[in-house]
Design a protein around this nucleic acid. Structure first.
Lengths: 344, 344
DNA sequence: GTGAAAGCGCTAACAA
DNA sequence: TTGTTAGCGCTTTCAC
């Protein structure tokens, strides 16, 4: 049996009629902002809305107001399991402000971001937060900038998280510094022979982390030959494979720095699978929650994800400036079991 | 310095004017559906849209059409790190169909779901997917049903995932069966003394899994005394604490069944922290990806998350029926290292 | 194949 | 404090 009986949704006019007031008054009563409504009328409107099961038509509201409330997050390259500390952080931050939150997930291709931004633009949200890594040689940057400029010209407010170097307000992390600090920490622990498992050749995030790490070692008079810096996809599986490749070469490695925790997990798992876990130390970057119970616990650069999201949202309510603002959030190294102190 | 210069977004009328056609034609050209547009005109419209940086005003479109395209997922009780296999599955499934996807995250309180559904309703999405656990004694169910009925009456299409027993199309998992199968599997491995770490007293999911497990044991003539079925919050930390409580009593437990993987992780971690990990076996439920690299690897009931999401989306395009459809998706036990065969 | 015009549900002057 | 009246930007008949 197949049903059909489809009415239409109750409209503001219906509520108004039932309450015996005009649409304008009903609107005022429902939206609360404009407080010039007699208490009795307000009550009747609310009552009417309730009995009709009325919900605002946000689309119509957005059309009338020219923009819709809330923040829309465009996240590029969401991982398979959807876990993403920035997304989580932004969601929480919007909840704290009781702002409507909407997620647009962009794919992993370069052009996906531009497309997603334009989709987001179509919704005319009052603020847009963009996140996700970027390649240094990304050819779609001009298109992205254009789309975001249009958006700002239309009166929208953008904040980028981690997409450093674009002419919009930005919150970034001190990737280079984090890498540097990790190098220092590992040297302090007594390590001398390193390898780096990195991702996506031109990815700026991983590039900066790697560079910082190498610089940190250099300052301690340690050199990492180029063949010990492996580059592949930016995920666990690739890291797993790269670790195999590295060790097969039988190089003398004491510690492996993976440019993010997901990759560190791949390294750790490979080592465990091959029984090498006690021989080689591993460090990551991000300090994601999902790895909190891993054995051995992972030495990593802790990033204050919630704070990053908070800063970004705080920025959205500030007026735009020329040049745009940039806030750099620092992480700090947390030494755990995966990098025990070396005793020679 | 503070900028201001705010233009307004390009409208369809602007595009039409620049292309030298009417708004109607521009609309037809842009939306492609109605193919009665001369090729030359279509090209000019597209061109004009591009030079103006035009993006459809989806809100206006939704108002005009009465409904907006795409699926909106209402997810209750998203975990802190945002990882949620159903969300991930639904996202993927919508992407495969290139449908716009929007997420509304509801809190963990009972009433949060109703509120979130009404928020979702306000967007007038063509389809709504609801997910998240439910308590057996949930007092907001009538309100939820009412909200969803309204939504359907307005012409929307709802599918519930895992919220069994409500008068709407539903995809559920065979929780009871999974628990039963796990019991059988563990008995087959040689275990005889069990405990269950369960969550939220009236949560239907965990209740069914627990009941199934107990029934499975009963069929093997094994009884679990009530004091070995611990109930607390439905998360890792609670499970960690409960395990401590259980073992402190010094009961003779060979295997612990946690009603989901997150809790199993808590159990596992507690055992590891106290050095008991080799003494007690652990099994979970869900087979979430995040735990793929845990040591020891976790015996669990594998759930086909992507398939569940697929089924749900497939349902949304079917006409409604009376009574509503229910699809039950089964999982299967995967035995891994956390439950080695018992040798006596 | 194309345009004019009506209307989608709401908000925001403006008047009363 | 309330109602009237224009829109908001788009789609969609209905003529041409």
């Amino acid at each position: 049996m197949t049903d059909s009986a489809t009415t239409r949704a109750a409209r503001l006019a219906d509520v108004a009629r039932l309450a015996g007031v005009s649409a304008a008054t009903a609107s005022r009563a429902l939206n609360g902002n404009d407080r010039g409504v007699r208490e009795a009328n307000r009550a009747r409107v609310l009552e009417a809305a309730k009995t009709l099961g009325y919900t605002t038509n946000l689309a119509a509201q957005a059309v009338a107001r020219g923009r819709s409330r809330g923040v829309m997050l465009v996240a590029k390259g969401m991982p398979d399991d959807f876990a993403n500390p920035i997304t989580a952080g932004v969601l929480k931050a919007t909840q704290r402000r009781s702002l409507p939150f909407t997620l647009v997930s962009a794919g992993t291709e370069q052009s996906d971001l531009v497309e997603a931004v334009n989709l987001a633009r179509s919704h005319r949200p009052e603020t847009l937060v963009i996140t996700g890594g970027r390649a240094a040689d990304d050819t779609t940057i001009p298109a992205l900038i254009e789309a975001l400029r249009h958006y700002e010209d239309e009166g929208g407010r953008v904040v980028l998280i981690s997409q450093e170097g674009l002419p919009f307000d930005t919150v970034t992390y001190a990737n280079r510094q984090g890498g540097y600090d990790m190098a220092t920490a590992l040297v302090d622990l007594g390590y001398r022979e390193f390898a780096v498992i990195s991702g996506m050749k031109h990815g700026m995030t991983q590039r900066d982390r790697t560079e910082g790490f190498v610089a940190g070692l250099a300052d301690a008079d340690i050199e990492v030959s180029a063949d010990r810096i492996l580059v592949g996809e930016f995920n666990r599986d690739a890291a797993y494979a790269m670790t195999g490749e590295l060790l097969r070469r039988n190089v003398n490695v004491e510690a492996i720095f993976a440019v993010n925790d997901a990759m560190a997990l791949g390294v750790l798992t490979f080592l465990r699978d091959t029984g090498d876990s006690r021989r080689v130390a591993v460090a990551g970057f991000d300090d994601i929650k999902a790895l909190r119970d891993i054995t051995p616990s992972l030495t990593t650069v802790h990033m204050p994800w919630e704070q990053i999201a908070e800063e970004a949202l705080a920025m959205t309510v500030l007026p735009r400036t020329t040049p745009p603002r940039t806030t750099v959030v620092k992480g700090h190294v947390i030494v755990r079991e995966s990098t025990p102190r070396v005793t020679r």
